[in-house]
Design a protein around this nucleic acid. Structure first.
Lengths: 352, 352
DNA sequence: TATCCGAATTGGATCGTTCAAGGCGGCGAG
DNA sequence: CTCGCCGCCTTGAACGATCCAATTCGGATA
């Protein structure tokens, strides 16, 4: 191995000055074509790579973006983040950025981490996931003019900052529509307690779809925090009602999984037009369609494994668009790029 | 906001030289206690943070470690990486390091990425996951003296480099032992094609456990690449044999999930001492114990969701130990720290 | 021929930190 | 008394890139 190859090495090798080499890399248009080629050749020959540290010291830019990796709560929804991260890393690499991970127990700790990462590592930007009403993190970042994008809408003001999101309401509406088309009328919803942006959005999709079909959604929904056990409890409660729903839409795969068990436990009631969906996946149909169809949300591996019909989010796309927006802010003019709302799709399996 | 606060700002504020401030941070023992306190106070007051870029430029160390984020293959095993990454990031932060992500399509691309990360970002070290026989990546890194740790043994030479692993053989042995204790004798194994380190290890655990119990494992195992469909196929094949196994141990949850379906499809055969395990999880027992008990490997969310008994890897621990070993190499004397072999545990659920 | 112009290139200064070398007062040994 | 050493601190130089101002140079213009 030879000595470390710096910009000076390249300059000497190509018979030009350091600045010219720098120009070839950063502003190729100011360099004569023939010179540019000669320099580029030297770069390739020597295997030169600009030192990020040196560049960063001068420019204050690190070409690093940070993402938080959350503790896998439920376990089921964990792999959502997994897919998102992969897409993010891949797109960032293509744009010349690298993704850095950080953890934080709560919003306050996360803000402290922002501060640390910004002052110590000169981070260029952040990708936040899972925003909610009055998020203190976005306020902190915006106040300091730090570039960031959220995966999840700013529920208070759609123009507050760049964001990417998946249209959850459209997803539950699509799920509800699928069940309506199969002949169901009384379609229940199992979701999260009112107040969370995402949860309310998903419930709204179901409600509006029912209303549009002329069905009164009153009394057809239940709510609880996420979890299989909760899903089972709520579904059992719904199915035991005076006039129970004949199909269920859920705000998550966790809830849906629990609901599925309640649906299976329930006697094969007199649901209309049962057994409409055909097995969609390649694996054998290992579970019979439940008497009460159930649709989940997120299309997690668990859903795929147990044959649960679920609303799938285009996570790779979402991650890519996050990077797009962020780099637009970083590399382009200082204007806020338009937000992106992606459409989910319904993945049909055995349960609906 | 005031101006950027550098080491010079602190020095002025504390009435000392830059170097003394630097010493307070990096070699506190050479500074008089009273001075140290004064400087520390100035640091806290001003909210000073050392610029990584400047430090890195001088020392050549970035306090960054890189991990590859793989494309979620199966989906089921994806969340394994998720948990590992979280633990890694957390432990790295505690040790003053940050985790950076990268992707790579294959080993060659990964090596190219090594080169890039090393020369451009001055990466301090790598954490590799999923090593195999004759891994070109470890060879490349070792040749250049780049610090790295693998999660997964170097299957050719245990002393080649620092590593952390989970004792897969012990896991399958434990699973097999559990079934033996329940009265089973003919216990089958569904695993991956011979040749992969991890797969062979897991098979060996099962084989030796059977042998130790005086059972001849011949003909009781099948192999295929990972996947639910494959698992179902292999299990069906095994169960259709002349003298079929009465219980199954699998090399992954994916295979186990498939096997479970085959086991349920099979008529409740005359297995011995059926129904020994009691429901372990908090959620209601939604699935009856199968006629042929099945045990998976990895304790994925899917396993938890469907009630599959599975061998659980201590991923958080593993990640932490990876960071420990890596920082030992980075911060300590240049000797190879002892490898770490962690023990998995059997999580009992409904299927065994 | 002298002058000017713009494109292309050059050399010096700079970012914030750590390293290497050196200053300085005091103390113990020769 | 002087010398060397030690503990504590300071100063100048360097890491490798980019920014800025100055300079060269070929060619067009007066």
């Amino acid at each position: 191995m030879s000595e470390k190859v710096t910009i000076a090495t390249v300059a000497r090798h190509a018979q030009v000055s350091r600045q010219t080499v720098s120009n070839v890399l950063n502003s190729p248009h100011v360099v004569r074509e023939e010179t540019r080629r000669r320099v580029q050749e030297a770069i390739d020959t020597l295997g030169y790579r600009a030192s990020q540290a040196a560049r960063q010291m001068r420019t204050g830019r690190s070409r690093l973006i940070a993402v938080r990796i959350e503790p896998t709560r439920d376990g089921i929804n964990g792999s959502v983040l997994d897919r998102f991260l992969h897409g993010l890393t891949e797109t960032a690499e293509a744009a010349g950025y690298r993704a850095m991970l950080y953890t934080a127990a709560d919003a306050a700790a996360e803000i402290a981490t922002f501060d640390d990462l910004l002052s110590a590592y000169d981070l260029d930007g952040f990708v936040l996931t899972g925003t909610d009403h009055g998020d203190p993190r976005t306020a902190w970042l915006a106040e300091r003019g730090v570039p960031f994008v959220t995966f999840g809408r700013p529920w208070d003001d759609p123009d507050a900052h760049p964001w990417v999101d998946v249209d959850g309401a459209a997803g539950t509406a699509q799920a509800t529509g699928h069940l309506l088309a199969a002949g169901h009328r009384r379609i229940g919803f199992i979701g999260w307690p009112a107040g969370s942006g995402v949860g309310d959005d998903r419930r709204a999709g179901w409600r509006e779809a029912l209303r549009a079909a002329g069905v009164d959604p009153t009394g057809l929904d239940r709510e609880a925090v996420d979890g299989i056990a909760e899903g089972e409890r709520l579904a059992a409660d719904l199915l035991a009602a005076a006039s129970p729903p004949t199909a269920l839409v859920c705000a998550s795969d966790s809830l849906a999984l629990g609901a599925l068990q309640a649906a299976r436990a329930a006697a094969p009631s007199t649901g209309p037009a049962a057994r409409t969906a055909a097995p969609a996946t390649g694996t054998a149909a290992h579970t019979a369609a439940p008497a009460v169809p159930v649709i989940g949300f997120d299309d997690t591996p668990v859903a795929a494994a147990v044959g649960l019909t679920s609303v799938s989010q285009p996570l790779g796309d979402a991650a890519a668009r996050c990077v797009d927006l962020l780099t637009a802010v970083l590399d382009g003019p200082p204007r806020t790029p338009a937000p992106v709302l992606l459409q989910p799709s319904l993945v049909l399996r055995h349960t609906a």
